[in-house]
Nucleic acid binder design. Sequence first.
DNA 1: GATGAATGAGTTTTCATTCAT
DNA 2: TATGAATGAAAACTCATTCAT
Lengths: 206, 206, 206, 206
Amino acid sequence: MTIYSVKNMPRTPEQNKEIREKTRRSIMDNALKLFATKGFHGTSMADVAKEAGVSKGLAYNYFKSKDDIAHSIINEIMVVGDQIVMMMQKIDDPVEQLHTMINYTFGFLDENEQYWRLYISFVLQPEVANMSSEIMLKFAKNMFHALEDIFTRIGIKNVKEEARYIGALIDGITLHYYFDKENYPLKSVLKLLHSKYSREALEMLK
Amino acid sequence: MTIYSVKNMPRTPEQNKEIREKTRRSIMDNALKLFATKGFHGTSMADVAKEAGVSKGLAYNYFKSKDDIAHSIINEIMVVGDQIVMMMQKIDDPVEQLHTMINYTFGFLDENEQYWRLYISFVLQPEVANMSSEIMLKFAKNMFHALEDIFTRIGIKNVKEEARYIGALIDGITLHYYFDKENYPLKSVLKLLHSKYSREALEMLK
Amino acid sequence: MTIYSVKNMPRTPEQNKEIREKTRRSIMDNALKLFATKGFHGTSMADVAKEAGVSKGLAYNYFKSKDDIAHSIINEIMVVGDQIVMMMQKIDDPVEQLHTMINYTFGFLDENEQYWRLYISFVLQPEVANMSSEIMLKFAKNMFHALEDIFTRIGIKNVKEEARYIGALIDGITLHYYFDKENYPLKSVLKLLHSKYSREALEMLK
Amino acid sequence: MTIYSVKNMPRTPEQNKEIREKTRRSIMDNALKLFATKGFHGTSMADVAKEAGVSKGLAYNYFKSKDDIAHSIINEIMVVGDQIVMMMQKIDDPVEQLHTMINYTFGFLDENEQYWRLYISFVLQPEVANMSSEIMLKFAKNMFHALEDIFTRIGIKNVKEEARYIGALIDGITLHYYFDKENYPLKSVLKLLHSKYSREALEMLK
DNA sequence: GATGAATGAGTTTTCATTCAT
DNA sequence: TATGAATGAAAACTCATTCAT
């Protein structure tokens, strides 16, 4: 009796659930990768299915449309992002919090590349994929609030502007890094960044 | 009264050239607008032609493919961008040069919005429209070199990093502004930006 | 009762293969018919799809372009043609072989009409359908070699020229027959042909 | 006063006629060349106009449609062909006539290539260009009659079949020659052809 | 007589989605 | 749950023909 005779045995509900989650994950991951590099409209469902190693029919079993995949991905980005923000907020010292935020952002640059590319693309071209940017806007606002909160607690002046300022800095560096990863002097730029937000430097902003 | 006022004479080459330039301009402008907001793949040639007020066929009389339109636009952005950089370099005082650059960038934010959106979306998704990012990379490098040159002449430390830093800042602010124009506190952020690069502040970086 | 009689099971690979072969066959057959009579460029994919009873989309599921259909057909003609030549070569007596070849050619004139029309039209207009005539040339060479072999074994003089001569004769008669099938005196012309290559007549060529 | 001031002088009717004939000739010649190699539907009016060095508009000044060009070309082929047949008939000796016909046909193979290719293409695919093959059929019949006449006068048996036979031979050789001009042993094949229709050989057919 | 910009209908090709199995 | 054959609508692109000049 070989392992293949198993396939005629009914699966347990747990097995089914596991399979479903794995497949769904694979579709989303591969769709993300493709959407991020080729664009949403530049990627076909056939591309996604092939990349995920499933049939086109099955992909529609998990998502009711191509839009639905995009929505699910963006949603997930938002949720994960919010979780990270919340996690950060558990740190007491605001300066440490700030640096942790920076470190986290740039420590997972390669892991988050596709998410970020897709997110920014949708931000820049809101008509693509009918993405109501509401949810993305709200997410961005959360980010800025978190930064404002940090700066308030540090006690500097121009809290709102400084929050926008460092936010821009982080996204700008990210953008430039992704544009030319091989040649970007990430390490030394980050060193400069940290030095500009060292405790002493922050004192000057009070 | 010229010879060409005679009935049944073909248009002069000059007349044709004028017509061609006007129509080409219109197609490119409208394509830019659409590509920038709906994305390259999200925009059809029918969309472009309609928006430009010409037939689909005529659009292909001017550009041999949709890709060709995108390439022509990007090319033009690069050329105009290079011209601006060169223009800036005529200013003697490097600090003034730096602030002129900032002012120029943010003074024409609304005029340049579509260009920037398209440029960044191609940067993020180079596979779209077969954009060989070579030319875009070269353009970006020029920008960084111009900034490094300014900082060198000002005489600060960490020239390369500071160039990357302020470059990121400018693009980051631009990105965030376009994301939520109504609510972005552009004026006060720019004030902060200028203050951080005032003559006195720059002294500290030497 | 097999496992696949269970509801909601995907088709077996065998079933799919069978479907694919049938549909592919139908597309090729109908494309051949249309290409042969209306010309390659005179036939649209819509024509082909309609004639084959499938949607345009499906036709592209089977062939990646209109050119691809033409290439596939020509390829098949070459393969079948080569097989026939090989089959002939199993006959021992060269004179019998020669007459079998003639009989075969003219015995299936009506069955092979479309093939021949298409083949010749590609021969005459090699730029159509990007037909690299290489493969067709090779096929023709095979034919001439087979004829030369026959004549060599019969032992006549001017083997090469005689091979070209009878080859031209066969294609010329075919061409004229297809030009005006109703009125062509095929039977009596073939009788003349056979008489000119009878054993006695061949003796004269030694 | 330069030659260019002449262009504002009204042309004489003779000049106009000459220009018209030249231009018309050029359009037809270039259309023939293109139709013959790329096929009628594979050739665009833009191709024709460009090749002939005139504007598209002007081409329509001379021919009312693309079909019209094709018809005009075919017509001309028929007329010229008939003239040649008539010319041949002025030769008294039928055997000499036969060989003159052969020599003429193969003596101008390269000059007549495009005509022949186009003619045969239309014969094989009568639906292309709405070519009613009536006129082409009539032309072919003329040819066969001329041959039959020759053979009758020579006094051989099976006049009709022999006419078809040699007609097929001539077209078959022509076809094979055009297929692979570089490698076709035209000279020795023609030598064989002449020898098979020498006065002595013809005696055997009586 | 001559030009080439412009059109619109048609052609090739793609692709999200459905459906039989 | 899973497949991939099949569809139809839309997209990219072509081209015969017209027309203002």
